[in-house]
Amino acid sequence: MRAVRVIPCLDVDSGRVVKGVQFGDLRDAGDPVELAHRYDAEGADEVVFLDITASSEGRATMVDVVRRAAEQVFIPLTVGGGVRTLDDAIKLLRAGADKVAVNTAAVQDPLLVSRIAEALGSQCVVVAIDARVSVPRGNEESPEGAAAVRGVNHEQVPGAPPERWEVFTHGGRFPAGIDACEWALRCQELGAGELLVTSMDRDGTKDGFDVALTRAITSTCSVPVVASGGAGELQHLVDVALLGGADAVLAASIFHYEEHSIAEAKRYLASRGVSVRPPNP
């Protein structure tokens, strides 16, 4: 059977969990190992650590966080953020990570994906794709275009050109000039074992996932797709699983601030017809 995974994501800055709103405005949310352990106990299917540390000292801290987490947390652990080379990937896997997520470095050097896949296996290579709705030139001022930019209108307007998304790098700062679906397919061909797709229009807004973006990627690619960005209530998880075809749903703030527990999320998903591994009793 296919069971949708529920994945809490921890943004880690110099060894502490933080949660930003649209890639800025950081708030402290605790110790990553402690949180990962709590999520494991609640029935999380996997944990993602996203290293958002800028300094190189902070990066060494991350390897230590992974090592400590791997001693206590016995569910899959994915680490992303700042993975630039095969050596970075090896270091994290040796510390106890099961998968590494590459983002900006993969856009700059797509063969990095192949090198990691060949050396360590596709199962440990996740390509993280940050995407934003792209508005055709000249349409910026139209109501639909403006709404799309705000991430409000994700329904396809009849007769409108198909929606497109552009890849962004460096934590969402720079447009890469690549179409998200084309990039996703390329990553799969290069050996990515999974895609972590974040809607930057939705990230931190709690308005719900960009279901159309998720659908576009899941219908293009055959590897598992993790949907990310915008979870604000439990129904959003259901929508992206059922309508977007997501293989896994990733969320941060709804779990960190104890608005909802992992167990609640799973019970809700199950009650709406999404099969999940039941939460721990």
Binding site: R2, A3, R5, S222, V223, D247, A248, R277
Partner: peptide, 11 residues
């Protein structure tokens, strides 16, 4: 007809 890899929990 199923996703490969199987990357998930199963019974």
């Amino acid at each position: 007809g199923v996703k490969r890899p199987q990357m998930q929990w199963n019974v």
